[in-house]
Simulated assay, not measured.
Amino acid sequence: MQEEIDSLNLLAILQEQIDSESAESKIVGFVLRRMAQLQNTDALDLVLENIDKLYTSFRHIFVYLNELDLNESQKESVSEKLIIILDDSIVGHLEYHRMWLFHTFSNGQGWNIDKLATFYNEYFDDTSRRKIILALGQANQQSWFKTRKRSIMQMPNWQRRAFLAAAKCLPGDEASHWYRSILPRLDVLEVDVVKWAMSR
């Protein structure tokens, strides 16, 4: 009962911040941290639908989102909203914001990632591409990795390391055989990434 009351009060505070001329990031962050602790999803639609007003609290919103234990239906709904934010919102045009958004898609399975490969071809910044690669691996997009594994050495360093980590989704022994074939060409950090991937 007390948790329900707390949630109602927290939502009221959050709505006040949205209705104000300038939302205070510290207050929004406090509210969302508490709601994440309660595993309360009531603020999810509210913050995503008002993301332009809460752009200074972007990190808090995505920390909250990534700490929630969402079911498949909720992930489907959130995926659609995130893609709209990416396509239409002013915040979707900033590299820092895209990093958090794509990080969400790489946070476990169940996200709608139909457009991820398209986004990889649209965004050329290293941060976005690295997160997209990790998300594609989480989504078990084996064909995407199959068609690109031979050109991995042409990728920038951090994209290559993300590819190495995510390519563990390749089927059967294909991943381990491929990892062994490229080991001599990798640097020390990349070798460690491969060891981590092969242990999974």
Rank of each mutant, 00 (worst) to 15 (best):
M1Q: 13
Q2N: 10
E4T: 11
D6F: 11
S20G: 03
E21Q: 13
E21Y: 11
S22N: 11
S25M: 13
L32T: 02
Q37R: 12
Q37G: 10
D45S: 15
D45F: 13
L46Y: 10
I51T: 06
I51D: 07
F62I: 05
E67S: 09
L68K: 09
Q74L: 08
S77H: 12
I85E: 00
I90T: 11
E95Y: 03
H97W: 09
M99V: 08
F102A: 04
Q109T: 15
G110V: 05
G110D: 07
N112A: 09
I113T: 01
L116S: 07
F119A: 00
Y120D: 02
Y120N: 02
D126Q: 14
D126S: 11
I132L: 03
I133N: 01
N140K: 12
S143H: 12
T147P: 06
T147G: 08
R148C: 05
S151K: 15
I152K: 04
M153P: 04
M155C: 07
M155T: 01
W158G: 02
Q159Y: 02
A162T: 01
A162V: 05
F163A: 06
A166I: 00
A167H: 02
K168V: 15
P171V: 10
S181T: 10
V188L: 14
L189T: 14
E190S: 10
V193S: 06
V194R: 05
W196R: 14
R200K: 15
